[in-house]
């Protein structure tokens, strides 16, 4: 709770500082809002033309895509400009400052900059997810809403964990970081669509090797009542737990890298 209070203070300072340059502050949010609005429009055009993708209508795809984008946006607010770009923090010497603060390095990096531009992404996904959930043909129960919240938190943990792992690769070599960014960026694009349209090895890889499918695909199957196999049900129900374990794993990877770090001049 103490960390949350400290984070809230840092976030307030960061927002006040950001609003001094009002153009950049609002421009960043608007650009993100517009970009993902276009993404949703393209999806809408496809579903309108073909009646859906493998039986998934626009509302279903809005939930699928929205869970991914929403989780990424929250993780981005926390870590996109600090941990994800750790090579910049190391080169500038800012990481050395983090080591002498009276809080954990990851916590301090989360506090250092509030990614306000991601608020635009959050706004557009909330609009489309809320619209989609209002239109689906069955009633969302109390369990559905609790599960939705838990799966969002799980998605945030997985996305944050991915940023931590990518950032921590800077301790070993920048080129590794660029390779890892491919797995976070390009490979994650598979989860913008229902994985049933891809060959099975892609679904298996995105479930058991790199858990991107746990962010949105399996939770969507549960929320939208599209579960067809026991495997999908179990992974979907366990997704909050998978998120926690993945985040703990990424924290330990980051700390292992930090132990190797001997300072900017070292």
């Amino acid at each position: 709770m103490n960390f949350l209070r400290v984070y809230a203070s840092f976030a307030a300072f960061s927002l006040k500082a950001g609003m001094k340059d009002r153009f950049s502050f609002y421009a960043g949010m608007f650009a993100n809002f517009y970009s993902y609005f276009i993404t949703y429009t393209i999806l809408w055009a496809i579903t309108r033309r073909f009646g859906g993708i493998d039986g998934w209508g626009f509302e279903d795809l809005s939930v699928l895509l929205g869970l991914n984008i929403f989780a990424y946006a929250i993780a981005g607010i926390l870590f996109r400009y600090t941990v994800y770009q750790l090579d910049n923090e190391i080169a500038s010497g800012n990481l050395d400052n983090c080591l002498v603060r009276p809080m954990g390095v990851v916590q301090y990096l989360a506090c250092r900059r509030f990614g306000s531009a991601f608020l635009g992404q959050i706004a557009v996904t909330v609009i489309f997810i809320a619209g989609a959930l209002g239109k689906i043909s069955y009633h969302m129960t109390a369990f559905s809403y609790v599960y939705l919240a838990a799966s969002v938190i799980s998605g945030v943990l997985i996305q944050s964990g991915a940023m931590l792992i990518i950032g921590s690769l800077s301790f070993w070599g920048i080129r590794l970081q660029k390779i890892a960014a491919i797995f976070c960026g390009e490979i994650r694009s598979f989860t913008d669509y229902p994985l049933s349209i891809f060959p099975d090895f892609i679904r298996l890889g995105l479930t058991y090797a790199i858990p991107w499918a746990v962010i949105n695909y399996y939770p969507s199957l549960i929320i939208l009542r599209r579960v067809q196999t026991n495997e999908e049900f179990v992974i979907g129900i366990l997704s909050p737990l998978i998120g926690v374990f993945f985040f703990l794993f990424s924290l330990s990877a980051f700390n292992a890298g930090l132990e190797r770090y001997s300072g900017r001049e070292g």
């Binding site: 496809i46 073909f50 993708i53 493998d54 080129r175 660029k178 390779i179 960014a181 491919i182 960026g185 390009e186 490979i187 694009s189 598979f190 913008d192 669509y193 349209i197 891809f198 060959p199």
Partner: peptide, 25 residues
Amino acid sequence: RKGVFFSFFGSVVFIAISLMLWRVL
């Protein structure tokens, strides 16, 4: 030119995803 490898890989993945999508549609 080393950075181009990453954008080449990105292009291949993007095209692969699109082709699989069109195969279903």
